[in-house]
Each structure stands twice: as C-alpha cells, then as structure tokens.
Amino acid sequence: MEVRTIKVFTTVDNINLHTQVVDMSMTYGQQFGPTYLDGADVTKIKPHNSHEGKTFYVLPNDDTLRVEAFEYYHTTDPSFLGRYMSALNHTKKWKYPQVNGLTSIKWADNNCYLATALLTLQQIELKFNPPALQDAYYRARAGEAANFCALILAYCNKTVGELGDVRETMSYLFQHANLDSCKRVLNVVCKTCGQQQTTLKGVEAVMYMGTLSYEQFKKGVQIPCTCGKQATKYLVQQESPFVMMSAPPAQYELKHGTFTCASEYTGNYQCGHYKHITSKETLYCIDGALLTKSSEYKGPITDVFYKENSYTTTIK
C-alpha cells in the first residue's frame, strides 16, 4: 500500500517557510505537534488534498525554529505562539472599519479597549522592536488589523473576551517599542525636605499616572512627601515624541487643539466601556464603527496623549 502524501510549508514567522512532505494517514499533531492554519487549530486533523502548498504555523520545537521565533517575536515564552494563534482565530472574524481616516474595530468580545489602543497607536510616533509587531502594525494602518490585535493580546497575556485596560495595554506595548531616546527629568520640591531631581528613561519617561493635564504637570502637581507634608512635583525636561497622561476616570474637559487623542471610560472596574476622542479640525468621538463630532467635550476621561518633541522648564 502506497503512502499518500502532500507537500506543505511549516513556519513560526510566515517569513521562513520549511518544506514538509506530510503523510495523509496521520494527523498534523502526530507529525508536527500543535499546528495552526489561519489561526485555526488543526492539530487533530489529517492532511487533505486542499492543504497542498498551504502554510501551517507550528510551535518552535527545534533550534532553527526557536531562533526564527525569537528573532521575529522577541520572546522565548513557549506558550506565546499558541496564544497568538488562538487569538487570531477570533480577531480574523472582527470587522476593521476605516473611521475618520483611522483603522478602528467594530465592537465584539469586549474589544473596546483594543480599538482605543489601536486608534491611539496610529496617532503617536512609535516604532516597535519585534519585527512581528512592526509588520502587523503597518498592515493594521492599511486596514488589516487582525494579526496586530492578536499579537497585542498575546504580548499582554490576554484572551479574547476578557476586559482590558488601555493604560495597561499601552504599557505592555511600550515595553516592546523603541523608547531608548526618551528621557524625563522631574523635580520634587518640599518646604521641609528641599528639592530632589529624578531622571527617568524609556517607558517611565512617557507615562504618568495622577493627572490628565500635561500643562498642569509642567506647572506642578501636589504629591505627598515622605515627611508627610505636601510637596510639588513638576516637569523639568521632556525628550520624547509623545507623552501619555493618565488618571482614574473623572469628568474632564478636553479643549480642541490642546491634545492629540484621549480615552474615555464609562462604567466601573468590573464592567465598563471605552471610547476614543481625537482632536482634528474639530473633536471626534470614535466608538467602534461609530463616529460623532463636537466642538467641545466633557466626560469621564482616563488617558490623554500629547505630541511632544523637546521641553525644558522655565521655572527657576
């Protein structure tokens, strides 16, 4: 009895394709271990004539594949690729409408935090270190965002349907971005203890939790000093293409032309909904596939993004 075979390709990165001759009487799992086709788990399936010449994702289970996976995804987590594939199996079914010149995501599976993050990423200057993220990001900007969303979920250790947080998501993504040249110098002034300067680099240099107003941050924000008295913390120097200011959701007025974009969060910790506000020729609110415009805006804002380049204080 002759062994019926077909020729397929296996890959971990969709760049390096490895030619395989597979036995049609055995499952993919018996031949390769966990195997995925377009995100779908085909591990328990036997090869079919229609699979001839198709590319299958496999887990990096030998040295060659491990090197290829690390170079593309910059992670050695053995569960990463499987999590990416199972997320992709959902995100490829989502709709990605162009809204006001940006790629958004039609609401499904509690994905409003991903839509808000995706919209924000198209408006701030950011370059990702893992080629996987950078490639998928370019495709997302062009309207094909399924891979990018699935990668975000995998890097953030999230599953489809789980509630997510924009600030946490951005923080994970910033860790995989090139923020080497970003720098922030802060000064804390206390009447009792004097003053202390701190220099922050990388992710810490672009994120701040405690106030939404970048102007206020430049002037000074009140913080408790270690001595128990009130101290003032203010920005001395900022070198970065953008800054992200966050605070627990509270009524906040966004003035046209003073910011790049913002995240609105309605609801409580267990259950809520994100919308995205962007400042173009007027203010726009993007909620999944829905767009509304207004000249002014007041609502429960939790993150505001500002364009920056270089700032030095005039406070002496």
Rank of each mutant, 00 (worst) to 15 (best):
Y214P: 01
N49R: 11
I124Q: 07
L65D: 04
A87H: 09
K316Q: 15
L291Y: 15
D41I: 10
G143I: 01
A136C: 03
T116I: 01
K201A: 09
E162L: 01
V99W: 13
P97H: 10
L291D: 09
T192L: 05
P248V: 12
D41H: 05
T278M: 10
T27E: 14
F148N: 01
L133W: 02
K46A: 11
G267S: 15
Y208R: 07
H273S: 01
G299V: 08
F242C: 06
Y284E: 11
A247W: 06
L173I: 11
K127Q: 15
R139P: 02
A250S: 11
M26A: 13
P131S: 02
G202H: 08
M1L: 08
A132S: 05
L126P: 07
Q30D: 12
A145I: 01
R83C: 03
C156R: 02
T226A: 14
H51Y: 04
A150W: 01
T91F: 01
H276G: 08
S171L: 11
T211N: 07
H51E: 11
N110I: 02
G143H: 00
T282I: 08
L121K: 03
Y28Q: 05
N111K: 06
C149W: 04
Y297N: 02
F148P: 05
F70R: 06
V8C: 13
K44F: 13
T312Q: 14
T314A: 12
T10G: 09
N110W: 04
P300N: 10
E204T: 06
F70S: 08
S279M: 05
F32P: 01
T35V: 13
N100H: 11
Y36H: 05
A142I: 02
L254I: 02
A262Y: 02
T11L: 04
K293T: 13
Y172S: 13
M26G: 14
Y208P: 01
Y234D: 11
F128V: 07
E253G: 12
F174H: 03
C182G: 12
N309V: 14
A231P: 02
K255A: 11
R184N: 03
Q122T: 05
N187Q: 14
C285R: 04
D109L: 05
K46V: 14
Y252K: 03
V243I: 11
A108R: 04
K316N: 15
D38E: 12
T266I: 10
L283T: 05
Q222V: 10
L153P: 04
Y28G: 07
Y73E: 07
L254N: 04
F148S: 03
T10K: 11
T76H: 06
V21S: 12
D180E: 12
E52R: 11
A117G: 05
V12L: 09
H176Y: 14
I105R: 04
Q251H: 11
A247D: 01
I6S: 08
L114R: 04
F9I: 11
Y155E: 04
S294P: 12
Y252M: 10
G101A: 06
I124N: 04
F9M: 13
T55E: 08
E281V: 03
L81A: 12
V243G: 00
N147F: 02
G33W: 05
G257A: 08
Y84S: 05
Q31P: 10
Y274E: 07
I105Q: 06
N16W: 08
I301Y: 05
Y214K: 05
A250W: 01
T313V: 10
Q237P: 03
K46R: 12
K275R: 14
D109V: 00
D77K: 05
C261A: 03
I277T: 00
A177S: 09
V304M: 07
V67I: 14
T266M: 09
P300W: 15
G82Q: 15
T292I: 10
P97S: 09
L37Q: 13
Y284H: 10
C225Q: 03
L114E: 04
F148M: 12
E296I: 12
A177G: 02
Y73L: 04
L179K: 00
P224W: 14
Y284S: 06
S104W: 08
R83N: 13
Y137Q: 02
S213R: 00
W107E: 04
L126K: 04
R4I: 14
H276W: 13
L290G: 09
S294N: 09
T258W: 00
D109W: 01
P224H: 10
H90T: 11
V3L: 13
G29P: 08
V21Y: 14
G228A: 03
L126C: 06
P249L: 04
C190A: 05
H48F: 11
E2L: 10
K127L: 07
Y234L: 05
L151V: 01
G143Y: 04
Q237K: 11
Y269K: 15
Y284V: 10
R66W: 05
N16G: 05
H51F: 10
K183M: 09
V185E: 10
Y138M: 14
M170T: 01
E253I: 12
T76D: 09
D303Q: 01
Q270D: 15
M26Q: 15
G164A: 07
D180C: 04
T76Y: 11
T199R: 09
T159E: 14
D77V: 02
D41Q: 08
I15R: 15
I152F: 08
K54L: 14
N89W: 14
Y274A: 10
